[in-house]
Design a protein around this nucleic acid. Structure first.
Lengths: 221, 221
DNA sequence: TCCTGAAGTCAACAAGTGTTGGCCTACACT
DNA sequence: AGTGTAGGCCAACACTTGTTGACTTCAGGA
């Protein structure tokens, strides 16, 4: 029996999201996605052109972050941790970003864009100084993505065994301090400049993709 | 001119490490590795049998963690953060574990084993209670791997722009509290089981990795 | 009724993958 | 010098990948 184009397209998209989430970019094949959607692989091409564009269509997300200004200032950490936990379990969005972003540059760019566009502005509203916001956003992302990585992707047994509430209890103070805590002094007894000009590894990094695009710069200025 | 078997094997291993580190498991092809090592692909098979065994040989690491008992108790956080930063830059070890562990189950297992065998014991020595150690190890791993992910893999601009010292300054208090801080109470107004579950880091996990129909298994609860 | 166009299938392509086996060839021995 | 062998190369295999184009089938308007 026959489906409308819209329905088929949606089925393909749903199958693609699941595959990208569990397999990553390269192992998620068009053929597997098509099979999941009960369709011929050529239909995927007809509707989305090629694999890259299919991914782009499948990886358009809203982090759906809460309005932290409606939260008491001393509870924004808890609120954000709790939100990320539920957000992770709501659908495949974050899982896709993480699994594909690690090995595919276009996907990494997408991850950067999502966090830049949705997390950074939220934090600017929270902290006064717009210069500090990107750094604080990156710190928050590092802890939240790191926990997601350990718990849902790498599946470290103790991380999996923790209850949601335990995770919230442990991570909230961390996130709270990244959001609203004082900026710490870089350690005095170290050798190097604290200038933000040069990042380690940037030069050494052998990019198999072009790394020229900075369209997703988390910085605001 | 000709090389000894040992030299060639080492060259292959070095090339493999670099490829696995930058490309991940599936995109790091035997052919590319062989080309990097100036050798025919068939030699890789001769020396290592197959790709899985090559990876196993290439991903045997020592995290080389410092003896935290020789560090003042209030500085173990700083010491560990600093160590991970230098460790990351020392060679491809952590990059390999991260890049491959996300999409390849065998690699994920390797990552688990490395952290279980090397990080957990260290922490047991530090905190009295061996029941709490795995959880604390997972928390430390989540923050350290998360920062590595944002800085070196996903390359969030603000994370890349931070100096080593800034990273140390921000992350040290977090790690310190995960290591030696009081265990927080899980939030009272939630429904969780109060018995703090902790699985040892060494627990085995069944991992149906590839079947898309099981993506929900990757979620907790 | 026929006709048109959209939905869907089928078979094949070129390229790339891990892997295999046969064949060279330099060189350390006798 | 002759030779055995370890180090190395080549060509091919069976398979999978993204992608293409020609073909079929159906629904509905004229």
């Amino acid at each position: 029996m026959r489906r409308s184009a819209e329905v088929t397209k949606a089925a393909i998209l749903a199958a693609a999201r699941e595959r990208f989430a569990t397999d990553g970019y390269e192992k998620a094949t068009i053929r597997a996605i098509a099979t999941d959607a009960n369709i011929d692989p050529s239909m995927v091409m007809r509707y989305f052109g090629n694999k890259d564009r299919l991914f782009a269509a499948a990886a358009e997300f809203d982090l759906d972050l809460p309005d932290l200004n409606a939260t008491p200032r001393d509870q924004v950490g808890t609120a954000l941790v709790r939100h990320f936990l539920t957000r992770w379990q709501a659908d495949d969005a974050l899982q896709i970003l993480l699994r594909t972003g690690v090995t595919n540059e276009a996907a990494a760019e997408r991850t950067r864009v999502v966090f830049a566009a949705q997390l950074a502005p939220l934090i600017i509203h929270l902290v006064g100084d717009p210069d500090q916001a990107p750094t604080r956003a990156a710190l928050v992302a590092s802890q939240m993505l790191g926990m997601a990585l350990c718990r849902y992707i790498l599946r470290f047994p103790p991380a999996v065994a923790m209850s949601d509430d335990e995770v919230i209890a442990w991570l909230s103070p961390t996130i709270q301090s990244y959001l609203t805590g004082e900026r710490p002094d870089p350690h005095p007894l170290s050798r190097t400049s604290s200038g933000t000009s040069n990042a380690p590894f940037t030069a050494e990094y052998r990019a198999p993709f072009n790394s020229a695009s900075h369209s997703s710069d988390l910085r605001i200025r």
